[in-house]
């Protein structure tokens, strides 16, 4: 489902995954001291436009992914209204005996929008980055030890197999007349065989990797090389531009 976007030949897909991830972290850290609603709102708008225009993601699909986030964001608004640190003075209206003040709604919206900004930037990364390119970039640019990188990649490639295995376990349980009850109590019945299978597969994979000469040493050659390119420079420039614009536009409110 995500592959069709991750493999598109658009601007964001060509940017180095490590740089993109770095940008996500920078955005998150920049948002920490912001408590007005306009800055995150503006940033969220810009991000959505970037994902659609530069990443080629359809608006409907993006909206669908952000939908659960809206609920999460809304929780910040109501909890801020009901349990604020200090209640504001400008009363908008009252629900029962509960006064709803402008200040609290605005802080709540700000925190909710902040969660949405985090979500949208995460989507910007996830929707435009192929997992294997991400891992190779971590190994080649961020100096992640290849043992960990390839170990993770192997585990990632096995995930679809686990889904089949889960189905198999369920069928096996049904044949033995254990029924198809679902719930927290039944978790162990699936978890233990699944994990036992995963550990056996992992041991075999490790033996296979070692027998093929993979010793996890650093000075190795790569079939796919991830290079820095001009798109990375454009992206870094765009990010700087975005941050300074938002900084200037929203500074009158951030007092």
């Amino acid at each position: 489902m995500l592959e069709q976007y991750q493999q598109k030949d658009r601007f964001l897909q060509k940017v180095n995954p490590s740089l993109k991830l770095g940008a996500v972290l920078v955005i998150i850290i920049m948002m920490i001291p912001v408590f007005n609603p306009w800055t995150p709102l503006l940033l969220f708008g810009c991000t959505v436009i970037m994902i659609i225009a530069l990443g080629g993601v359809s608006f409907r699909f993006l909206g669908l992914l952000l939908l659960p986030f809206l609920l999460f964001a809304f929780s910040f608004v109501w909890i801020q209204v009901v349990f604020p640190d200090e209640r504001g003075n400008t009363i908008l209206f009252t629900i029962g005996s509960l006064p709803v003040s402008l200040e609290n709604v605005s802080t709540g919206v700000s925190l909710g929008m902040r969660a949405l900004v985090f979500g949208s930037w995460s989507l910007l990364f996830v929707l435009t980055t192929e997992p294997s390119r991400f891992m190779l970039s971590l190994i080649q640019q961020c100096k992640l030890p290849p043992r960990f990188g390839y170990g993770m990649m192997a585990a990632y490639r096995f995930l679809p197999l686990f889904r089949d295995e889960l189905r198999q376990i369920r069928t096996a349980h049904r044949i033995r007349g254990l029924g198809e009850k679902r719930g927290i109590g039944q978790l162990k019945r699936y978890f233990i065989p699944l994990m036992a299978g995963a550990i056996r597969k992992a041991e075999r994979t490790a033996v296979a990797m070692e027998s093929k000469g993979f010793d996890g040493s650093r000075n190795r050659t790569f079939y796919h090389r991830i290079h820095w390119n001009r798109y990375d420079a454009y992206f870094a420039g765009l990010l700087l531009l975005l941050l300074t614009t938002i900084w200037f536009v929203s500074s009158p409110w951030s007092a």
Binding site: A155, A198, A202
Partner: peptide, 13 residues
């Protein structure tokens, strides 16, 4: 390597 791969599999699940 064996421990890393096993760790990766468990953590991936």
């Amino acid at each position: 390597l064996r421990e890393i791969v096993v760790m990766a599999f468990i953590s991936a699940v």
